[in-house]
Design a protein around this nucleic acid. Structure first.
Lengths: 256, 256
DNA sequence: TCAAGCTAAATGTTTAGACATTTAAATATG
DNA sequence: CATATTTAAATGTCTAAACATTTAGCTTGA
């Protein structure tokens, strides 16, 4: 990309490129101009009227092009002051911002299970509510302590709906939803997540190797099928100092 | 929300609301009109000239308002045909999030704001990273203590990207994303949420009226446009004993 | 000296009108 | 009947002009 001067870039537009709207052609010129060294320090861009005259278009057209570039984040305008090139984005490194858990998953660092126990317990009120069962119905409960690198990170209790017909003898070293799907053909689709912070109880502290009272991220997790029938209810206790839970979300659609 | 007729919505604008640009007032009217039942089936919206005449503005102004709504994804235009209300795109995505006040409003809980301060601070390393700015760039920061029934529930700090061109004088009693959208036309679309639990610091404890060391749910929240450009980075501290954060998630769809 | 007020320069808003382009449907034509 | 062609109606582009608002810097007066 040979560097042109501002004058060259802003020379009057040719008659070519017909079919492409004027403001688009102006936009391209201005984009080139914005990349000029002289505007990288926050120096003012030429004003709208000057640009319009130099390019041989009306102020409206120049302004339309400028507005598009502002919208695109390349320029910044301030009433009464002028237009500047927005600070260049530092680095393409979009990814430097990663959660521990995601990092683990992507790097394939194996999650270790330090204890695992699976047997039936009568449903508590909360569990019964979540799984839409009568309280005290026997439900298979999977308790696990997991982590990586020899350090426990979480303690989880999962209650699995009797409808799934699990025996407790399945291979729970595989991802839970794979186990459920291959055992029963039921597909997890929706989940409701509740997040709270709690102080570690004595029992929990001992299991996770932290001091009682340490901050614990408690995630209560109700999973169901697409049709809304409940599959699993889980309570996961994360040692906060060792783990950050990251979610990528999209906004709920606006209309209706 | 009482349903007005199209005629009522498109009655000539009053002289009130001075200081708010015409095209913005028109935008609001058109947004109301677009929610009307009669346009939900793909029926054509009134044409630009009709809208302009009915509202008593020029075509240019009506068109500016329409363009903003197109930009926001609410309307679709087609040359030679007309304007229609866009069908909400099938957000195949993982999930949904709503603003805090919107969430609470849906539950009928009026959110109260106990303190609110908005002024520019130099970006910290974390903030600069999240907003893709240079560290120490001045960024508008909105600090709030909110809750309900006279009890504080959360302390939040929101850093708003300079690109939004907010002044700090906006009406932050409205949902934040409405403020951003109406001020700049920029639509929040995606978010990345990090959850951890922390113990309340002395300063935080005082602000929220809890004992130091109490469990706090810390939610770090990076919001961006559909194209990935950052809008807001926020750190929200919830008093865990008074609040549970709930998210509804869907499994990422396979097709498309 | 310092603050209030003025001023010039920039962006922001609004209008009116002309013409171009695209589209769907009506109309002519083979 | 099927295919061009025309046409009307909508959005798309562009201009010129006027006035409003915001801001930084200058000027002035206490």
């Amino acid at each position: 990309m040979q560097t042109k001067t501002l004058d060259e870039i802003l020379s009057t537009l040719t008659q070519n490129d017909q079919g492409v709207p004027l403001y688009r052609r102006v936009e391209e010129r201005l984009k080139s101009a914005a990349s000029l060294e002289q505007f990288q320090n926050g120096a003012l861009f030429p004003d709208e009227l000057t640009l319009a005259n130099r390019l041989g278009v009306s102020r409206g057209t120049a302004r339309a092009a400028l507005s598009r570039l502002v919208q695109q984040g390349l320029l910044e305008r301030k009433a009464g002051v002028g237009t500047r090139v927005a600070r260049p984005k530092p680095r393409s490194g979009i990814s430097a911002w990663r959660s521990f858990s995601r990092e683990m998953a992507e790097k394939g660092i194996p999650v270790e299970t330090y204890s695992s126990e699976c047997r039936a317990h009568p449903a508590t009120a909360v569990v019964a509510q979540a799984l839409q069962l009568e309280p005290r119905t026997p439900v298979l409960r999977l308790d696990r302590v997991r982590g990586w690198g020899g350090v426990p990170v979480l303690f989880s209790s999962s209650w699995l709906h009797p409808r799934l017909q699990l025996t407790g003898a399945e291979d729970y070293s595989k991802p839970l939803y794979d186990v459920i799907e291959s055992a029963s053909g039921i597909v997890a689709e929706k989940a409701r997540e509740d997040f709270t912070a709690v102080a570690a109880s004595a029992v929990l502290a001992k299991r996770l190797g932290v001091k009682p009272g340490s901050p614990i991220l408690l995630r209560c997790h109700a999973v169901c099928e697409a049709n809304g029938r409940p599959i699993e209810y889980a309570e996961v206790n994360y040692v906060s100092s060792r783990f950050t839970l990251t979610l990528d979300l999209r906004r709920e659609s606006l209309g209706a």
